[in-house]
Design a protein around this nucleic acid. Structure first.
Lengths: 243, 243
DNA sequence: CGCCAAATTCCGTGTCACGGAACGAACTTT
DNA sequence: AAAGTTCGTTCCGTGACACGGAATTTGGCG
């Protein structure tokens, strides 16, 4: 029964649109009767919002979601550094962590002239197609990298790296330089540069700058990205003593 | 059963800490057996994270929460204006909407030297104790204001307005000037100035700047706040045509 | 009026959620 | 070392209530 409620909420991944009862029931794989009752409960609990015959994710989820500890804390301490990075580059700034084989974005700040991107706060993209993802993968220990390289690599654009050998080389360069690059591998027309954020010896997060392809000047962006990542790493140094 | 699961999640409001099984069960008002089974399910679904014997809110909630449509859209279109406001004031910038008699914060950006504040993304504060809240209340129609003024006014600090007559006057001034002020009414040592954001004729949100009391120069902040609110209102003008 | 597709209500069946009780482990107290 | 606490966890019998099929209502359209 919890599973069925979760199945309904899962329908809203990954875009969080607006659905009617019948579509919800078919997508969740539940009978219309059950869906009807569950949706009623979920609305009562604030987990879904109802507007006429349309159902969307509800405000209670937003409030609960913003309380999730590790995410919220990381975002909070990272924010000032991300602001610095945004101010010095005037480009879209990302901040994300690893979950399984995906990047999960915790923050994304931009100005009026942001490039359209598939990234979104709370959204996921494959590790191997993003600069942040590669930065995290390069500093997450060899086991994960081996596992990821063993399976077929996901492909978001024609530029996405699908050759394990090429990716392995890229990861080694990242380990040396401490910077990860990505050129149109997640979205056409956009390139990124990222740096890992450490808490102690492990990379707990990474931050990046996304730039329109034709304006991409790595040498110009690298220092700002490095500075931000380093500053944040220093602030995170003492790995949370209290529970 | 959904109710009981929701009761467990509700334990994490309003601070989203970390609880052990026994404490969860007592706070949620459920038997230990039931709590045990439910947290198992919730962990399996990703709605709760387990670390040893400690349970926290799970990553799935964060991801779902960031998909909640109206909140996400508003935040996304507001962000560039909030960035402008932050850059021109270098102070903590808030962005929030009204829900019932509370402000719900959708965004909060700050630099390295942020003043400590009770506000938090996804958090709630009473309308009457915050600049954003007063701005929203002043432009939400007389019914709501009447209802709020009829009941005892919540008090967060000794400066919070508890006299309905004084609040009524303040709201009228806000309606005239289009700016709302708050001086140490939500937290000691902090003052705010806010402006409502319109989509058509109704105030759908408001934004504010929070400043340490001794640095509070309303005349200096007002133009930037006005500009941001006006710019955002213009961008929101066409009230979302598609579903 | 008749058709269709949607939401909603009804209802009998069977399941599984419930909490009391008992157990094992880790830790404190005497 | 024994007795007592306080956890998390397992077991189990009972009864409530979740389930989906079928029937009914609503609403839109020709």
């Amino acid at each position: 029964m919890l599973d069925k409620a979760a199945a309904i909420l899962d329908v809203y991944r990954p875009d969080g649109g607006s659905f009617r009862l019948t579509e919800l029931s078919s997508r969740a794989g539940l009978s219309k009767t059950t869906t009807f009752r569950l949706v009623g409960e979920l609305v009562r609990l604030g987990l879904l919002d109802r507007e006429g015959e349309w159902y969307r994710l509800g405000g209670a989820l937003f409030e609960l979601g913003s309380l999730v500890p590790r995410r919220h804390d990381l975002r909070e301490t990272a924010l000032p550094f991300l602001q610095d990075l945004f101010e010095s580059t005037r480009q879209t700034v990302h901040f994300g962590i690893r979950d399984d084989r995906d990047v999960v974005y915790l923050e994304r700040i931009h100005g009026h002239d942001a490039v359209p991107l598939p990234s979104r706060i709370g959204g996921r993209l494959p590790l191997t197609c993003t600069a942040i993802g590669k930065a995290l993968l390069a500093f997450s220990g060899p086991e994960l990298a081996d596992a990821v390289l063993a399976d077929p690599l996901p492909q978001l654009t024609s530029y996405s790296i699908t050759d394990p050998v090429r990716l392995r080389t890229a990861l080694e360069q990242i380990q040396v330089s401490g910077l990860a690059y990505e050129e149109q591998e997640a979205a056409l027309g956009v390139s990124c540069i990222a740096a890992p954020v450490f808490s102690g010896a492990v990379a707990v997060a990474a931050l990046s700058v996304a730039v329109p392809r034709e304006q991409f000047r790595p040498a110009h962006l690298a220092p700002a990205v490095r500075t931000a990542a380093l500053g944040l790493s220093r602030t995170l140094r003492p790995p949370a003593a209290k529970g």
